[in-house]
Design a protein around this nucleic acid. Structure first.
Lengths: 201, 201
DNA sequence: GACATAAACGAACGATCGTTCTATAAAGCA
DNA sequence: TGCTTTATAGAACGATCGTTCGTTTATGTC
């Protein structure tokens, strides 16, 4: 890796954890230059525009998410177990990565949902991809017979998303130590309601 | 209402719908002055600081929420019906009010959850109050016997919150026309799992 | 209508914003 | 080592930021 790539990555590392606290929109070249002990113009040259820097942060976030949340779970056999692993990894991926201030993309989703442009598009695509990935995982749990054949997969993913966001809010805003327990309880209820019926009433 | 209060309210109206799109943190005195056809200093004088303006917007949001979502439901008899009404009002209160860009407080929650200060405190208190209000409503549905006596009320509210946030994201970011239907489906599943058991297996 | 008060303005402040330019220093390669 | 390319620095730009100040205009009261 050449010198250029190296510093670019160092900048992204810093930008990533900074964006976690103040949001992707709150990033500023000047502050980032201070934190990385660089000049504004030197840092700027690596991205060409602020927007490109923000996009790079969003892409960085996607990549880390895939590495930390999804990939480890792919080593497990397909089915409910893998889904459980993804959910577990997902719920504490902000601890695993250097994310002092919560998921960057999730925050960006609320920030840019009304501001058309490349940033919104990037966030949207990232979350669409996540939803597809989750849907595929749920679908496999249906195939293995662990979840009912008439499971509404889109609905399942919808509710999973809600559980995640509620958890984030409880943790970050209310400092609720019960957040994780509640999240798992909600998830188990979701699984239970979509499990194969052993005894029909 | 004197002239002062009158313009202050006009400013808040504009700030409110603007904040809905760009976030409370993205508000700027200059832009707001343009939109209200005032000078920066004239507008500024009504609040004394930008932070005070932001706080005023958050309080405005709380007030409108109470008027539009909670109050109408209080005319219904306590119990599940009232809860349903609140949920219904809640899900489309962004349409009812002038909120082109989604719930201001919910967005602010993601924005300020890592930035200590009066704004975070205000958001936190607003959402705590909402949670308490929801919990009380659920508790009454337990009292009327419509929900089971061993309903975990905090858990119920937790999941309700998740449903709301998932709905917002689907609507705003994915333009998903099914979002409302999914929200109601999730809500009904939540109610069903906490309903009194008529036939034990 | 005169007067005290409150509201709005316009200009300016220092700070920071993203960006551009030119020059210097470092890195990579022959 | 020498040379080319790349990376970084520094200064400056115009724009906008929140805020302050003094002045002027409107409002409400006697």
């Amino acid at each position: 890796m050449g010198k250029g790539e190296q510093t670019r990555q160092a900048i992204l590392d810093e930008a990533f954890s900074l964006a976690s606290c103040i949001g992707v929109g709150g990033l500023s070249i000047g502050v980032l230059a201070d934190r990385t002990h660089m000049s504004k113009s030197g840092l700027f040259a690596h991205f060409g525009s602020k927007e490109e820097l923000q996009l790079a942060v969003l892409r960085e976030s996607q990549q880390r998410f895939a590495e930390v949340v999804v990939r480890p779970a792919l080593r497990l056999p397909r089915g409910l177990g893998r889904l459980r692993a993804i959910v577990a990894n997902w719920l504490d991926w902000t601890k695993t990565c250097n994310l002092p201030g919560g998921c960057v993309i999730n925050a960006a989703a609320a920030e840019f949902d009304d501001q058309p442009g490349p940033l919104r598009d990037e966030v949207r695509n990232a979350l669409l991809a996540l939803n597809r990935s989750l849907a595929a995982t749920v679908a496999k749990a249906v195939e293995t017979g662990e979840l009912s054949a008439d499971t509404d997969i889109e609905q399942f993913v919808f509710e999973l998303n809600g559980i995640y966001q509620a958890t984030q809010q409880r943790r970050r805003l209310f400092d609720d130590p019960e957040a994780d327990r509640r999240a798992l309880a909600a998830f188990e209820r979701l699984v239970r309601d979509n499990a194969v019926i052993h005894a029909k009433e």
